[in-house]
Write a protein that binds this DNA or RNA. Structure first.
Lengths: 183, 183
DNA sequence: TTCGTCATGTAATGGGTTACATGATTAC
DNA sequence: GTAATCATGTAACCCATTACATGACGAA
Protein backbone atom coordinates (compact mmCIF):
# COMPACT_ATOMS: atom_id res chain seq x y z
CA UNK A 1 0.00 0.00 0.00
CA UNK A 2 2.91 2.35 -0.47
CA UNK A 3 1.38 4.73 -2.96
CA UNK A 4 -2.38 4.90 -2.73
CA UNK A 5 -2.71 7.73 -5.21
CA UNK A 6 -6.21 8.43 -6.30
CA UNK A 7 -7.06 5.43 -8.42
CA UNK A 8 -9.14 7.37 -10.88
CA UNK A 9 -6.29 9.67 -11.85
CA UNK A 10 -4.11 6.70 -12.74
CA UNK A 11 -7.01 5.14 -14.59
CA UNK A 12 -7.58 8.31 -16.58
CA UNK A 13 -3.90 8.68 -17.45
CA UNK A 14 -3.66 5.10 -18.66
CA UNK A 15 -6.84 5.59 -20.65
CA UNK A 16 -5.58 8.71 -22.36
CA UNK A 17 -2.29 7.05 -23.19
CA UNK A 18 -4.11 4.05 -24.61
CA UNK A 19 -4.76 5.99 -27.80
CA UNK A 20 -1.21 7.17 -28.24
CA UNK A 21 1.76 8.72 -26.44
CA UNK A 22 1.41 12.12 -24.81
CA UNK A 23 3.60 14.43 -22.75
CA UNK A 24 2.73 15.76 -19.32
CA UNK A 25 1.53 19.19 -20.26
CA UNK A 26 -0.81 17.90 -22.93
CA UNK A 27 -1.97 15.16 -20.62
CA UNK A 28 -3.00 17.71 -18.06
CA UNK A 29 -5.15 19.60 -20.52
CA UNK A 30 -6.88 16.42 -21.60
CA UNK A 31 -7.39 15.36 -18.00
CA UNK A 32 -9.05 18.68 -17.24
CA UNK A 33 -11.39 18.20 -20.15
CA UNK A 34 -12.09 14.64 -19.14
CA UNK A 35 -12.49 15.05 -15.41
CA UNK A 36 -14.18 18.42 -15.41
CA UNK A 37 -13.45 21.69 -13.62
CA UNK A 38 -13.77 20.10 -10.21
CA UNK A 39 -11.16 17.38 -9.84
CA UNK A 40 -8.67 19.49 -11.79
CA UNK A 41 -5.18 18.10 -11.61
CA UNK A 42 -2.12 20.23 -10.84
CA UNK A 43 1.41 19.54 -11.98
CA UNK A 44 2.43 18.89 -8.43
CA UNK A 45 0.06 15.99 -8.60
CA UNK A 46 0.47 14.89 -12.19
CA UNK A 47 4.23 14.54 -12.51
CA UNK A 48 4.70 12.50 -9.33
CA UNK A 49 1.89 10.23 -10.48
CA UNK A 50 3.57 9.77 -13.83
CA UNK A 51 6.77 8.82 -12.06
CA UNK A 52 4.88 6.36 -9.89
CA UNK A 53 3.30 4.74 -12.94
CA UNK A 54 6.68 4.58 -14.56
CA UNK A 55 8.16 2.94 -11.49
CA UNK A 56 5.45 0.30 -11.70
CA UNK A 57 6.35 -0.14 -15.35
CA UNK A 58 2.85 0.61 -16.56
CA UNK A 59 4.12 3.48 -18.69
CA UNK A 60 7.51 4.38 -20.13
CA UNK A 61 9.13 7.34 -21.85
CA UNK A 62 8.81 6.86 -25.57
CA UNK A 63 11.65 7.87 -27.86
CA UNK A 64 10.69 11.41 -28.82
CA UNK A 65 10.86 12.44 -32.46
CA UNK A 66 13.96 14.63 -32.45
CA UNK A 67 13.89 17.61 -34.72
CA UNK A 68 17.63 17.99 -35.06
CA UNK A 69 20.46 15.81 -33.97
CA UNK A 70 21.62 16.83 -30.53
CA UNK A 71 18.59 19.01 -29.86
CA UNK A 72 17.67 18.74 -26.23
CA UNK A 73 14.21 17.32 -26.03
CA UNK A 74 11.93 19.66 -24.15
CA UNK A 75 9.01 17.30 -24.04
CA UNK A 76 8.89 13.89 -22.50
CA UNK A 77 6.37 11.65 -24.13
CA UNK A 78 4.90 8.77 -22.23
CA UNK A 79 3.39 5.63 -23.66
CA UNK A 80 1.81 2.51 -22.23
CA UNK A 81 3.90 -0.59 -21.71
CA UNK A 82 2.30 -3.92 -22.51
CA UNK A 83 1.61 -4.38 -18.82
CA UNK A 84 0.04 -0.91 -18.73
CA UNK A 85 -2.21 -1.69 -21.67
CA UNK A 86 -3.32 -4.91 -20.00
CA UNK A 87 -3.93 -3.17 -16.72
CA UNK A 88 -6.01 -0.47 -18.37
CA UNK A 89 -8.03 -3.04 -20.29
CA UNK A 90 -8.81 -4.77 -17.04
CA UNK A 91 -9.71 -1.59 -15.21
CA UNK A 92 -12.05 -0.58 -18.01
CA UNK A 93 -13.77 -3.92 -18.26
CA UNK A 94 -14.76 -4.57 -14.66
CA UNK A 95 -16.99 -2.66 -12.27
CA UNK A 96 -14.91 -2.21 -9.14
CA UNK A 97 -16.51 -1.53 -5.76
CA UNK A 98 -15.98 2.22 -6.20
CA UNK A 99 -17.08 2.41 -9.81
CA UNK A 100 -20.04 4.61 -8.91
CA UNK A 101 -18.18 7.09 -6.79
CA UNK A 102 -18.29 10.66 -8.00
CA UNK A 103 -14.79 10.67 -9.43
CA UNK A 104 -14.51 7.09 -10.56
CA UNK A 105 -17.81 7.07 -12.38
CA UNK A 106 -16.77 9.92 -14.65
CA UNK A 107 -13.53 8.20 -15.55
CA UNK A 108 -15.30 4.92 -16.18
CA UNK A 109 -17.83 6.55 -18.44
CA UNK A 110 -15.18 8.42 -20.37
CA UNK A 111 -13.68 5.06 -21.33
CA UNK A 112 -16.92 3.18 -21.86
CA UNK A 113 -15.67 2.60 -25.39
CA UNK A 114 -13.36 0.01 -23.81
CA UNK A 115 -16.04 -1.47 -21.59
CA UNK A 116 -18.36 -4.36 -22.53
CA UNK A 117 -22.01 -3.40 -22.58
CA UNK A 118 -23.12 -5.54 -19.61
CA UNK A 119 -20.53 -3.81 -17.46
CA UNK A 120 -21.59 -0.43 -18.76
CA UNK A 121 -25.15 -1.23 -17.74
CA UNK A 122 -24.06 -2.33 -14.31
CA UNK A 123 -22.03 0.80 -13.71
CA UNK A 124 -24.80 3.08 -14.93
CA UNK A 125 -27.32 1.30 -12.73
CA UNK A 126 -24.98 1.42 -9.76
CA UNK A 127 -24.45 5.10 -10.27
CA UNK A 128 -28.15 5.74 -10.58
CA UNK A 129 -28.83 3.84 -7.37
CA UNK A 130 -26.18 5.89 -5.62
CA UNK A 131 -27.68 9.17 -6.79
CA UNK A 132 -31.19 8.06 -5.87
CA UNK A 133 -29.99 7.10 -2.43
CA UNK A 134 -28.44 10.52 -1.98
CA UNK A 135 -31.65 12.12 -3.19
CA UNK A 136 -33.77 10.15 -0.73
CA UNK A 137 -31.45 11.08 2.12
CA UNK A 138 -31.52 14.73 1.20
CA UNK A 139 -35.32 14.71 1.00
CA UNK A 140 -35.80 13.19 4.43
CA UNK A 141 -33.34 15.62 5.93
CA UNK A 142 -35.06 18.56 4.34
CA UNK A 143 -38.39 17.28 5.59
CA UNK A 144 -37.04 16.93 9.12
CA UNK A 145 -35.70 20.45 9.17
CA UNK A 146 -38.54 21.93 7.15
CA UNK A 147 -39.97 24.08 9.86
CA UNK A 148 -37.75 27.03 10.68
CA UNK A 149 -35.56 26.67 7.61
CA UNK A 150 -34.30 29.95 6.25
CA UNK A 151 -35.70 30.78 2.82
CA UNK A 152 -32.31 31.05 1.15
CA UNK A 153 -31.25 27.72 2.56
CA UNK A 154 -34.47 26.35 1.16
CA UNK A 155 -33.66 27.68 -2.30
CA UNK A 156 -30.26 26.01 -2.13
CA UNK A 157 -31.79 22.73 -1.09
CA UNK A 158 -34.40 22.84 -3.82
CA UNK A 159 -31.67 23.45 -6.36
CA UNK A 160 -29.74 20.47 -5.03
CA UNK A 161 -32.79 18.23 -5.18
CA UNK A 162 -33.45 19.24 -8.77
CA UNK A 163 -29.79 18.67 -9.61
CA UNK A 164 -29.97 15.12 -8.33
CA UNK A 165 -33.30 14.48 -10.06
CA UNK A 166 -31.78 15.68 -13.28
CA UNK A 167 -28.82 13.36 -12.91
CA UNK A 168 -31.16 10.44 -12.35
CA UNK A 169 -33.05 11.29 -15.53
CA UNK A 170 -29.82 11.59 -17.45
CA UNK A 171 -28.63 8.19 -16.25
CA UNK A 172 -32.00 6.68 -17.10
CA UNK A 173 -31.73 8.05 -20.62
CA UNK A 174 -28.26 6.61 -20.96
CA UNK A 175 -29.50 3.24 -19.77
CA UNK A 176 -32.42 3.31 -22.22
CA UNK A 177 -30.06 4.16 -25.00
CA UNK A 178 -27.72 1.31 -24.12
CA UNK A 179 -30.58 -1.15 -24.02
CA UNK A 180 -32.11 0.08 -27.25
CA UNK A 181 -28.80 -0.26 -28.99
CA UNK A 182 -28.54 -3.80 -27.69
CA UNK A 183 -31.99 -4.91 -28.87
CA UNK B 1 -1.33 33.04 8.98
CA UNK B 2 -1.03 30.30 11.55
CA UNK B 3 -4.28 28.49 10.99
CA UNK B 4 -5.62 28.96 7.52
CA UNK B 5 -8.47 26.53 7.93
CA UNK B 6 -10.98 26.62 5.16
CA UNK B 7 -12.62 29.97 5.65
CA UNK B 8 -16.03 28.80 4.57
CA UNK B 9 -16.23 26.14 7.27
CA UNK B 10 -15.57 28.72 9.98
CA UNK B 11 -18.04 31.06 8.35
CA UNK B 12 -20.69 28.34 8.28
CA UNK B 13 -20.10 27.38 11.91
CA UNK B 14 -20.37 30.95 13.08
CA UNK B 15 -23.51 31.37 11.02
CA UNK B 16 -25.16 28.32 12.46
CA UNK B 17 -24.29 29.38 15.99
CA UNK B 18 -25.68 32.85 15.32
CA UNK B 19 -29.17 31.50 15.84
CA UNK B 20 -28.40 29.71 19.06
CA UNK B 21 -25.94 27.39 20.79
CA UNK B 22 -25.31 23.94 19.36
CA UNK B 23 -23.08 21.00 20.16
CA UNK B 24 -20.61 19.42 17.75
CA UNK B 25 -22.63 16.45 16.65
CA UNK B 26 -25.67 18.53 15.84
CA UNK B 27 -23.49 21.12 14.16
CA UNK B 28 -22.13 18.51 11.84
CA UNK B 29 -25.56 17.42 10.72
CA UNK B 30 -26.57 20.99 10.01
CA UNK B 31 -23.33 21.65 8.17
CA UNK B 32 -23.96 18.67 5.95
CA UNK B 33 -27.39 19.97 5.12
CA UNK B 34 -26.05 23.44 4.50
CA UNK B 35 -22.93 22.64 2.52
CA UNK B 36 -24.28 19.70 0.59
CA UNK B 37 -23.06 16.14 0.06
CA UNK B 38 -19.80 17.28 -1.46
CA UNK B 39 -17.90 19.35 1.07
CA UNK B 40 -19.08 17.09 3.88
CA UNK B 41 -17.27 17.72 7.12
CA UNK B 42 -15.81 14.96 9.28
CA UNK B 43 -15.32 15.05 13.04
CA UNK B 44 -11.59 15.02 12.53
CA UNK B 45 -12.09 18.34 10.83
CA UNK B 46 -14.94 19.78 12.85
CA UNK B 47 -13.65 19.41 16.40
CA UNK B 48 -10.22 20.87 15.72
CA UNK B 49 -11.90 23.78 13.97
CA UNK B 50 -14.14 24.34 16.96
CA UNK B 51 -11.09 24.40 19.19
CA UNK B 52 -9.40 26.87 16.88
CA UNK B 53 -12.42 29.15 16.96
CA UNK B 54 -12.52 28.85 20.71
CA UNK B 55 -8.83 29.75 20.94
CA UNK B 56 -9.57 32.88 18.93
CA UNK B 57 -12.40 33.62 21.35
CA UNK B 58 -15.01 33.75 18.61
CA UNK B 59 -17.00 30.98 20.28
CA UNK B 60 -17.16 29.63 23.82
CA UNK B 61 -18.63 26.66 25.62
CA UNK B 62 -22.00 27.66 26.97
CA UNK B 63 -23.09 26.41 30.38
CA UNK B 64 -25.08 23.28 29.52
CA UNK B 65 -28.43 22.71 31.19
CA UNK B 66 -27.51 19.99 33.67
CA UNK B 67 -30.11 17.35 34.24
CA UNK B 68 -28.91 16.36 37.68
CA UNK B 69 -26.33 17.81 39.98
CA UNK B 70 -23.01 16.11 39.38
CA UNK B 71 -24.13 14.49 36.15
CA UNK B 72 -21.27 14.42 33.69
CA UNK B 73 -22.28 16.50 30.74
CA UNK B 74 -22.12 14.43 27.58
CA UNK B 75 -22.68 17.30 25.22
CA UNK B 76 -20.65 20.43 24.87
CA UNK B 77 -22.64 23.31 23.57
CA UNK B 78 -20.94 26.16 21.82
CA UNK B 79 -22.17 29.71 21.46
CA UNK B 80 -20.88 32.86 19.83
CA UNK B 81 -18.97 35.37 21.89
CA UNK B 82 -19.64 39.04 21.20
CA UNK B 83 -16.51 39.13 19.09
CA UNK B 84 -17.73 36.08 17.21
CA UNK B 85 -21.10 37.66 16.53
CA UNK B 86 -19.40 40.80 15.23
CA UNK B 87 -17.07 38.78 13.07
CA UNK B 88 -19.89 36.80 11.56
CA UNK B 89 -21.91 39.95 10.88
CA UNK B 90 -18.94 41.36 9.04
CA UNK B 91 -18.30 38.20 7.04
CA UNK B 92 -21.93 38.06 6.00
CA UNK B 93 -22.15 41.70 4.96
CA UNK B 94 -19.19 42.04 2.65
CA UNK B 95 -18.30 40.34 -0.60
CA UNK B 96 -14.77 39.05 -0.11
CA UNK B 97 -12.51 38.27 -3.05
CA UNK B 98 -13.44 34.59 -2.89
CA UNK B 99 -17.16 35.10 -2.38
CA UNK B 100 -17.97 33.44 -5.71
CA UNK B 101 -15.84 30.38 -5.23
CA UNK B 102 -17.69 27.10 -5.27
CA UNK B 103 -17.59 26.57 -1.53
CA UNK B 104 -17.78 30.14 -0.33
CA UNK B 105 -20.70 31.04 -2.53
CA UNK B 106 -22.90 28.38 -1.01
CA UNK B 107 -22.09 29.51 2.51
CA UNK B 108 -22.69 33.13 1.62
CA UNK B 109 -26.03 32.34 0.07
CA UNK B 110 -27.10 30.26 3.04
CA UNK B 111 -26.70 33.35 5.20
CA UNK B 112 -28.07 35.90 2.76
CA UNK B 113 -30.62 36.68 5.44
CA UNK B 114 -27.77 38.51 7.19
CA UNK B 115 -26.53 40.20 4.03
CA UNK B 116 -27.72 43.58 2.71
CA UNK B 117 -29.40 43.40 -0.67
CA UNK B 118 -26.73 45.31 -2.64
CA UNK B 119 -24.12 42.84 -1.45
CA UNK B 120 -26.39 39.93 -2.28
CA UNK B 121 -26.72 41.27 -5.82
CA UNK B 122 -22.99 41.68 -6.14
CA UNK B 123 -22.29 38.16 -4.96
CA UNK B 124 -24.92 36.65 -7.22
CA UNK B 125 -23.58 38.60 -10.19
CA UNK B 126 -20.02 37.64 -9.36
CA UNK B 127 -21.02 34.03 -9.14
CA UNK B 128 -22.88 34.18 -12.41
CA UNK B 129 -19.88 35.76 -14.13
CA UNK B 130 -17.69 33.00 -12.75
CA UNK B 131 -19.98 30.28 -14.04
CA UNK B 132 -20.32 31.94 -17.44
CA UNK B 133 -16.58 32.18 -17.67
CA UNK B 134 -16.25 28.50 -16.92
CA UNK B 135 -18.91 27.74 -19.50
CA UNK B 136 -17.15 29.76 -22.18
CA UNK B 137 -13.87 28.02 -21.42
CA UNK B 138 -15.47 24.63 -21.57
CA UNK B 139 -17.10 25.43 -24.90
CA UNK B 140 -13.92 26.55 -26.57
CA UNK B 141 -12.10 23.52 -25.30
CA UNK B 142 -14.78 21.20 -26.57
CA UNK B 143 -14.71 22.94 -29.93
CA UNK B 144 -10.94 22.57 -30.17
CA UNK B 145 -11.08 18.87 -29.43
CA UNK B 146 -14.30 18.27 -31.34
CA UNK B 147 -12.82 16.11 -34.05
CA UNK B 148 -11.85 12.69 -32.77
CA UNK B 149 -13.67 13.02 -29.45
CA UNK B 150 -15.05 9.75 -28.16
CA UNK B 151 -18.84 9.67 -28.08
CA UNK B 152 -19.06 8.93 -24.35
CA UNK B 153 -16.72 11.78 -23.56
CA UNK B 154 -18.96 13.94 -25.70
CA UNK B 155 -22.01 12.91 -23.68
CA UNK B 156 -20.20 13.84 -20.48
CA UNK B 157 -19.21 17.20 -21.88
CA UNK B 158 -22.71 17.96 -23.07
CA UNK B 159 -24.02 17.16 -19.64
CA UNK B 160 -21.49 19.51 -18.09
CA UNK B 161 -22.36 22.30 -20.47
CA UNK B 162 -26.04 21.90 -19.67
CA UNK B 163 -25.26 21.85 -15.96
CA UNK B 164 -23.47 25.16 -16.21
CA UNK B 165 -26.19 26.67 -18.39
CA UNK B 166 -28.72 25.61 -15.83
CA UNK B 167 -26.77 27.21 -13.01
CA UNK B 168 -26.58 30.46 -14.97
CA UNK B 169 -30.37 30.43 -15.44
CA UNK B 170 -30.88 29.74 -11.76
CA UNK B 171 -28.66 32.65 -10.77
CA UNK B 172 -30.43 34.89 -13.23
CA UNK B 173 -33.76 33.95 -11.70
CA UNK B 174 -32.43 34.72 -8.24
CA UNK B 175 -31.17 38.09 -9.42
CA UNK B 176 -34.51 38.91 -11.01
CA UNK B 177 -36.24 37.97 -7.83
CA UNK B 178 -33.97 40.15 -5.74
CA UNK B 179 -34.51 43.10 -8.04
CA UNK B 180 -38.26 42.61 -8.21
CA UNK B 181 -38.46 42.50 -4.45
CA UNK B 182 -36.50 45.71 -4.32
CA UNK B 183 -38.69 47.62 -6.80
C1' DT C 1 -28.34 -7.08 27.39
C1' DT C 2 -27.40 -5.78 23.25
C1' DC C 3 -27.75 -2.91 19.37
C1' DG C 4 -27.94 1.50 17.26
C1' DT C 5 -27.34 6.13 17.60
C1' DC C 6 -25.65 9.94 20.08
C1' DA C 7 -21.43 12.15 21.27
C1' DT C 8 -16.54 13.58 21.64
C1' DG C 9 -12.14 13.22 20.59
C1' DT C 10 -6.96 11.85 18.87
C1' DA C 11 -3.21 10.37 15.80
C1' DA C 12 -1.26 8.99 11.73
C1' DT C 13 -1.19 9.02 7.29
C1' DG C 14 -1.30 10.57 3.01
C1' DG C 15 -1.40 13.30 -0.63
C1' DG C 16 -2.93 17.52 -2.88
C1' DT C 17 -2.14 22.55 -3.46
C1' DT C 18 0.78 26.25 -3.67
C1' DA C 19 4.72 28.54 -4.61
C1' DC C 20 8.84 28.47 -6.49
C1' DA C 21 12.51 27.62 -10.03
C1' DT C 22 13.97 27.01 -14.64
C1' DG C 23 14.23 27.20 -19.50
C1' DA C 24 12.54 26.58 -24.46
C1' DT C 25 9.71 28.31 -28.06
C1' DT C 26 6.51 31.30 -30.44
C1' DA C 27 4.32 35.62 -31.56
C1' DC C 28 4.42 40.44 -31.74
C1' DG D 1 13.79 41.70 -27.57
C1' DT D 2 10.21 40.72 -24.78
C1' DA D 3 6.00 38.90 -23.33
C1' DA D 4 3.17 34.90 -23.27
C1' DT D 5 2.75 30.25 -23.46
C1' DC D 6 4.73 25.82 -23.44
C1' DA D 7 7.00 22.57 -20.51
C1' DT D 8 8.97 20.15 -16.49
C1' DG D 9 9.80 19.65 -12.01
C1' DT D 10 10.55 20.16 -6.54
C1' DA D 11 9.49 21.02 -1.73
C1' DA D 12 7.03 22.60 2.05
C1' DC D 13 3.12 23.27 3.97
C1' DC D 14 -1.35 22.28 5.16
C1' DC D 15 -5.01 19.98 6.44
C1' DA D 16 -8.59 16.59 5.58
C1' DT D 17 -9.67 11.86 5.87
C1' DT D 18 -9.43 7.67 8.18
C1' DA D 19 -9.27 4.68 11.73
C1' DC D 20 -9.36 4.15 16.19
C1' DA D 21 -10.89 4.73 21.08
C1' DT D 22 -14.30 5.68 24.41
C1' DG D 23 -18.61 5.97 26.63
C1' DA D 24 -23.63 7.46 27.50
C1' DC D 25 -28.37 6.55 26.48
C1' DG D 26 -32.68 4.58 24.73
C1' DA D 27 -35.15 0.97 22.78
C1' DA D 28 -36.18 -3.78 21.85
Amino acid sequence: MGTRRSADLEFAILGLLSSGPLHGYELRKRLDLLLGPLRAVSYGSLYPTLRALQARELIRESAPARQGLGSRRSRIEYELTDAGADYFAELASVAGPDAWNDDMFVTHMAFFGHTPRPVRLRILEGRRARVEERLALLRTRIEQAEHRTDSYVLLLQQYRVETLEREVRWLTDLLDRERAHAG
